[in-house]
Design a protein around this nucleic acid. Sequence first.
DNA 1: TGTTTCGTACGAAAAAATTCCTACATTAGA
DNA 2: TCTAATGTAGGAATTTTTTCGTACGAAACA
Lengths: 132, 132
Amino acid sequence: MKAASETENSKIEPTKSELEILQVLWEYGPSSVRFVNDKLNERREINYTSTLKLMQIMAEKKILKRDESAVKHIYHVTENEEKTKHHLLKKFVDAMYNGSASKLVVQLLGNGSTTKEDVEEIRNLLNKINEE
Amino acid sequence: MKAASETENSKIEPTKSELEILQVLWEYGPSSVRFVNDKLNERREINYTSTLKLMQIMAEKKILKRDESAVKHIYHVTENEEKTKHHLLKKFVDAMYNGSASKLVVQLLGNGSTTKEDVEEIRNLLNKINEE
DNA sequence: TGTTTCGTACGAAAAAATTCCTACATTAGA
DNA sequence: TCTAATGTAGGAATTTTTTCGTACGAAACA
């Protein structure tokens, strides 16, 4: 029974910069600091040691775990991506739409931020759910 | 032509605490500091002058505007609620789902965070869109 | 009218988050 | 082997955000 530790971990609340790093790791999988820093620098200027420090802190907080077997440490995200995203999404829905998912979708569909493809995909998804 | 000032304003990026205040103002409309502070204190302890300061700062940043005609100042949100929420939602989708709205909906529907009613409402919404 | 309550203004302290400097070890290449 | 490049560690400086203390004016009211 490891329910306790799981609920503890799911309380991840990454800061803005931490989220940037998570995004890289989610997209590219376990990476070195160098790699992450390069990716970040595609978007904005940030010193190597800053990224290092940040990732070290995230490792302390158990958001990341690192493989120290090689000199060049490799970091990976501890928590399951979907789980974390779901958690953050829920927080967002609670804060912005009083917990109402449909309100969010209304907003999503209601103004230009969705493409026709998006709408189609969502419709298909709903149909699938219906069949169950 | 006031397009310029409008786009400027839409770059609102409220901090965590600022968002708490926005939530109160969105829900209850223009309010005094006292009222907002009371609402906040239903959730967590926060000193009156802290809330005051925060709202003053938000007024400086033009997130809020205040009516000083009475001694007790009344604050209201400058920017349209929907517009701001849309902006924040877009940022969220970009950061978390690479800009893909349908991915977000997948997640929303994919795990217990939606009720049957939510799903129904979303379906109706889609049907409406279809008819157009 | 005197006192208490409630309001704003302002500045500073505290806390949180971000950034980077410096030191030193290891590795790669000339 | 010497040098340059690349890596981590750790602390400190900086910036941003949050919190609150103090001062003081206006209003309520006994």
